[in-house]
């Protein structure tokens, strides 16, 4: 026993090195999987306010772009409103959707205070948190398209897994044909994302619009993701290799809207019971 202690003491540096490395690797793995409230990331209040100050300085440089985007969206919405007001009111009320279904999504606007696009695992920090009703698993979008999914929240801040994160999968469909697949980033180009699992018999052509499917209830259905850039099918492959040009400009992301989906819990619990029966 004494010799064992002596041995451990003699190699204490090596063993503490091993111990620290295992601790780090455990943290890395946990950080990749875990969703919830966590202390050691940029949703931490102290860290977030530091980052936020730094963002306030650099934020001025993108104001012009934000203004242009907002003006464009405003014009689009005004056109839509104008078009609707010209339409004759239907004499017979068309089937009105259930009020719970009609109000199933609520949008919370938030400012981006930290963002990266060049790592393999990119995260985005926003300045709204649990106090504004944001919870892990919610989607974040803006007028240009899908942004990400809430990973961790603190009281006043939240960290999103960007669509540009090699671990993040988004259920998407091809708008023209309705076939659905999974969009996942390959870590290379921050403007291009892969669309996977589109079977080879489906007609896909460059220019097809890709939108979220709404099947996993994170994103509302029909949120723009991008446009097909190239679609090739390998001779022996069962699926297409589709490259999608993202509609979102992640390099200039400044504001996002977090989607609170009121029916997600209901949908999930219904589907879980089905899965358990299998």
């Amino acid at each position: 026993m004494e010799r064992l202690f002596k041995f451990l003491y003699q190699y204490r540096v090596f063993f503490s090195f091993l111990g620290l490395e295992f601790l780090c690797i455990w943290l890395v793995i946990r950080n990749n999987q875990y969703q919830g409230a966590q202390f050691f990331n940029t949703s931490n209040r102290l860290v977030a306010s530091t980052v936020s100050v730094s963002q306030n300085v650099t934020g001025y440089f993108s104001l012009q772009d934000i203004n242009r985007q907002l003006a464009a969206e405003n014009a689009r919405l005004r056109n839509e409103l104008e078009r609707r007001s010209l339409m004759p009111a239907p004499r017979v009320p068309v089937a009105t959707p259930d009020s719970a279904l009609a109000a199933r999504f609520e949008f919370v606007s938030a400012k981006v205070i930290n963002n990266s696009t060049l790592q393999y695992k990119n995260y985005i920090t926003i300045d709204k948190g649990a106090a504004d009703g944001i919870a892990p698993g919610m989607a974040a979008i803006n007028e240009l398209g899908a942004v990400g999914k809430v990973k961790q929240v603190s009281k006043h801040f939240a960290v999103l897994i960007s669509v540009l994160n090699i671990d993040n999968q988004v259920s998407c469909l091809i708008k023209r044909t309705g076939y659905f697949g999974t969009a996942q980033w390959d870590g290379l180009d921050p403007r291009v994302i892969d669309l996977k699992y589109i079977p080879r018999h489906v007609p896909v052509q460059p220019g097809d619009t890709i939108v979220t499917s709404g099947y996993n209830a994170v994103f509302p259905p029909g949120v723009q993701v991008g446009v097909v850039q190239s679609a090739v099918v390998k001779e022996e492959g069962p699926f297409y290799d589709i490259k999608v040009l993202l509609s979102q400009d992640f390099g200039k992301l400044s504001f996002v809207e977090v989607v609170r989906s009121y029916l997600k819990a209901e949908k999930d619990s219904l589907e879980t019971t089905l899965m358990e029966e299998k």
Partner: peptide, 17 residues
């Protein structure tokens, strides 16, 4: 560093090495 990069454990692991 990891706390600010949202990559808990990654930079720590490399730096300890």
């Amino acid at each position: 560093i990891d706390v600010f990069y949202d990559s808990l454990g990654l930079h720590a692991m490399s730096l300890v090495a």
